[in-house]
């Protein structure tokens, strides 16, 4: 078994009196596709937000081990620092830069990997110009991988819905992550687009050497692509296992379908 790249230990998150996450521990290993499922309001997105630095968790530790590097705790880091370390995410409700072109959206994703500052921008010296040329080229290559290159100069808001979801993935990939966190990538997609997304997720994992952690409600997608599944309900981790195990797990079925009431 390969080594772990993300370790969340006993993560708890309180919002005032509401405990959104209670003592949740998860591990992602190098090269895995892992799904996080659970009913609405179970705390899935909260967990993503804790990992990516949007909220610091109330208790517990989250640590990462970038491939070839030593482990480090990322609990209290700001989101942009977490991104620099190699975690990238997409959003459940699409958060593209609507009035910028598709290419510019991806170019923003390269931000943390570029160096030019104010002086470089004004003087536009050789290295800055080179960097700009390279970022345009690299961003276009990323769009090609996700098959969005035909929209390159289009405004993000004018894209069809499915393409907007894909652009979120492209933008996240541009940050050169080792772990990609996808928050409901298939939401609002039609079955054909979802099928296409299956292939894409597996392809990204295989060609980009990126591990994938996804939240998804579309069970067919989850069962097809993921190698392991975590299930949360009411902020608690209730099950973990392969898709086959999860399908048979009575606790999971109860969480999703409810319990029979005996009069």
């Amino acid at each position: 078994m390969s080594e772990s790249i993300l370790d969340a230990k006993n993560v708890t998150m309180n919002f005032g009196g509401l405990r959104a996450l209670n003592d949740v521990s998860m591990t992602i290993r190098q090269g895995e596709i892992v799904a996080l499922i659970g009913p609405n309001g179970a705390g899935k997105t909260t967990f993503f937000n804790c990992v990516t630095g949007v909220y610091p968790p109330s208790a517990g530790t989250i640590s990462i081990t970038p491939p070839g590097k030593s482990p480090e705790v990322i609990n209290n880091l700001l989101p942009h620092v977490v991104t620099e370390k190699g975690l990238a995410r997409t959003f459940q409700n699409i958060r593209l830069f609507q009035n910028m072109t598709v290419l510019e959206n991806v170019m923003i994703g390269r931000h943390a990997r570029l160096k030019a500052g104010i002086l470089g921008a004004i003087l536009r010296d050789g290295s800055t110009r080179e960097e700009e040329q390279k970022v345009i080229h690299d961003s276009y290559e990323i769009l090609k991988k996700i098959e969005l290159e035909k929209y390159v100069n289009e405004l993000a808001k004018n894209l069809p819905y499915g393409a907007q979801r894909l652009l979120e993935i492209a933008r996240a990939l541009a940050t050169e992550p080792f772990l990609l966190l996808l928050d409901e990538p298939a939401a609002g997609m039609n079955p054909k687009e979802t099928g296409h997304l299956d292939d894409l997720i597996v392809r990204i994992r295989d060609t980009e050497k990126v591990s994938i952690f996804l939240i998804e409600h579309d069970m067919s997608l989850v069962m097809r692509v993921s190698e392991r599944i975590y299930v949360v309900d009411y902020g608690q981790l209730i099950a973990e296992g392969t898709p086959a195990e999860i399908k048979r797990n009575p606790v999971v079925i109860k969480a999703y379908l409810g319990e029979e009431v005996n009069a």
Binding site: V54, R95, F97, I108, G109, H111, L114
Partner: peptide, 26 residues
């Protein structure tokens, strides 16, 4: 020149969506 630079793009990303731009490393 500022507008068409890394910094200018970051400004526009911040205008469009501050949360997303932060998640993209800005």
């Amino acid at each position: 020149r500022l507008e068409n630079s890394r910094l200018g793009r970051a400004w526009e990303a911040m205008r469009e969506d501050a949360v997303a731009s932060e998640a993209m490393g800005v």
